[in-house]
């Protein structure tokens, strides 16, 4: 196994899939000659040329729409959003086109595309550039939504997303791009819709994905020193949600904390919370506890930003509260 950063793992996934299947191509702002705004696509234009690694004008609806149209006629495009904040300009393509035409045509169309890019807060880029908008996409039947937390998951799931015949929204996290982890050397994919228990424990279940899974694992380590054993379940895929491992864990620990970087209202965590209380009502010793960003836009100042993103300390506190 090699030790790779999330950035390298994502790059490998795309390179390998582009080599494997000539129908795979990549497009987005600065993905080619600039080597990617976050250098995820570094080296790809040199290897595959301008048509398969297409630098586009700044036009998100077009980027997503070109991916949709190409996918409908048999290609496997990967559309990079410079960040998911800008995907709002392409939402119509995903919600009204990628997710709808199969249904409206009675199954005549398929849309094997991936929209990917960084999501979530970065470092002091303020309210418009720091959002976690996964619930926008997870709300929509017809879409798949994936949010990996480790380099291994990122590579295996991105490869699965590219091979999948459905439209996939693949949300990375800018802060995780530099984290390192073991990545298998062989060609592998991780099935979409497969939760993973990232740490076992018997006192409390923490459900968290993407950067919040990372923070939850740090919190679990801190709590272990005090004798509290957390089980951290990472759904990895937000839609479809692999619920069984979450329920199994809650039935064992009888306590549940859901951690997400997004706002609390109408969020993915709100949905998981509903599912857990419905399926595990008799097993719960306390109400499901949720940790979220505060219900406000992201402020700029670093002092305020730190308060905003759920930190491991905040998760530690939440676990103690749910166990109290």
């Amino acid at each position: 196994m090699a030790i790779l950063t999330m950035r390298e793992a994502l790059n490998q996934a795309m390179r390998e899939e582009m080599k494997r299947d000539p129908n795979v191509f990549l497009l987005g702002e600065e993905v080619g000659h600039y080597q990617g705004a976050y250098k995820i696509t570094s080296g790809l234009v040199q290897e595959f040329g301008d048509w398969r690694v297409r630098d586009t004008p700044i036009a998100e609806e077009m980027i997503a729409g070109v991916a949709v149209g190409a996918a409908w006629v048999g290609m496997r495009p990967i559309a990079e959003m410079m960040t998911f904040n800008f995907s709002l300009l392409a939402l119509d393509m995903m919600v009204n086109h990628a997710a709808k035409y199969r249904y409206m045509s009675g199954g005549q169309i398929r849309c094997p595309m991936v929209m990917r890019g960084p999501s979530g807060a970065a470092a002091q880029v303020a309210a418009q550039h720091s959002q976690s908008l996964e619930s926008y996409f997870a709300h929509v039947p017809g879409l798949i939504v994936i949010m990996p937390s480790t380099p291994k998951d990122a590579k295996g799931l991105l490869k699965a997303a590219i091979r999948d015949d459905n439209p996939v929204v693949f949300m990375e996290n800018e802060v995780l791009y530099n984290i390192k982890g073991e990545v298998p050397d062989e060609d592998y994919v991780i099935p979409i819709g497969l939760s993973e228990v990232k740490r076992t424990g018997h006192h409390v279940t923490i459900v968290a994905w993407s950067r919040m899974c990372y923070h939850s694992l740090l919190a679990a380590e801190m709590l272990a020193k005090e004798g509290i054993e957390c089980e951290v379940v990472d759904p990895r895929t937000i839609r479809p949600l692999d619920e069984a491992p979450i329920f199994d864990s809650v039935r064992k620990t009888n306590h549940c904390v859901i951690v997400e970087e997004a706002w609390p209202q109408a969020s993915v965590g709100a949905y998981i919370s509903d599912r857990v209380q419905r399926e595990c009502f008799d097993d719960l010793d306390a109400p499901v506890f949720r940790v979220n960003a505060p219900d406000v836009p992201m402020p700029y100042s670093k002092v305020l930003e730190k308060l905003y993103v759920p930190q491991p300390e905040k998760i530690v506190e939440a676990v103690k509260q749910v166990l109290a």
Binding site: W51, G65, G69, W72
Partner: peptide
């Protein structure tokens, strides 16, 4: 208007 960008994508596939 939505499908106008989709048409460009079909054209892109043809070029590829």
């Amino acid at each position: 208007g939505g499908h106008i960008v989709v048409a460009a994508g079909m054209g892109y596939a043809i070029r590829l």
